[in-house]
Amino acid sequence: MLTVSHISKTFNPGTVNEKCAIRDLSLHLDPGDFVTIIGANGAGKSTLFNAIAGSFYTDSGSIVLDGRDITFLPEYKRAKIIGRLFQDPMLGSAPGMTIEENLALAAGRGGWLSHVTRAEKDAFRDRLALLDMGLENRMKQPVGLLSGGQRQALTLMMATMADPKLLLLDEHTAALDPGTAEKVLKLTREIVEEDHLTCLMITHNMQSALDLGNRTLMMDAGNIILDIAGEERRGLTVDDLLRRFKAGVGRALDNDRMLLS
């Protein structure tokens, strides 16, 4: 589904602030893969997402998604086939527009001058009802009135609406309270399973990194240092993971937001 080959990215090249954020990184995802990513601060996790989503073009290497070379496809065109969620719930929806209008934008069907039809509105309502947050009765309310958790759930819905080939989740539950985070995480799992989405998820929660998905990557210094899947991953504990990190890198995993349990 996704093949990232030997990409590198250096920020501010040739200056004192030169920072090699991704170093000759390669990654292959099969259709339906749900991959969790963990790593220390500055390991290049978000930079990898930015590279895949097209926030910048990589210095070298290529990115192929669903058989299509997207290495130099602009971000807004990639967004048609890549859904993305950020840590900040405010980044994913327009607060001054109603829930219905936000969903209409995300659905992205029809031409530029098409209106949202009644059938589409009903479909939005039905989908929102799945969230079990009562949002289906607030279609005409501006999104700015929703709580952070509701907004993130709505963003998740919006990001997965147009059947993306790939879903990028960048610590999307980190800014939510534990209860809401749990709920959004559960929703994520349901939606990904139901739609058979290929998904990459950055998390700082070591336990959910192991619980969710079918494969776990560990990143350090702009590259993947650990790639665990299948038999090897089953029965792995957080302690095992930390030990393997230390063995691989030669120092303890250090992330000020890391949740070890």
Binding site: Y76, A79, S93, A94, P95, G96, G108
Partner: peptide, 13 residues
Amino acid sequence: NNPDMVRSSSINP
């Protein structure tokens, strides 16, 4: 309304 949202969406600002 939300330039941040648009930047990472399929809308070309």
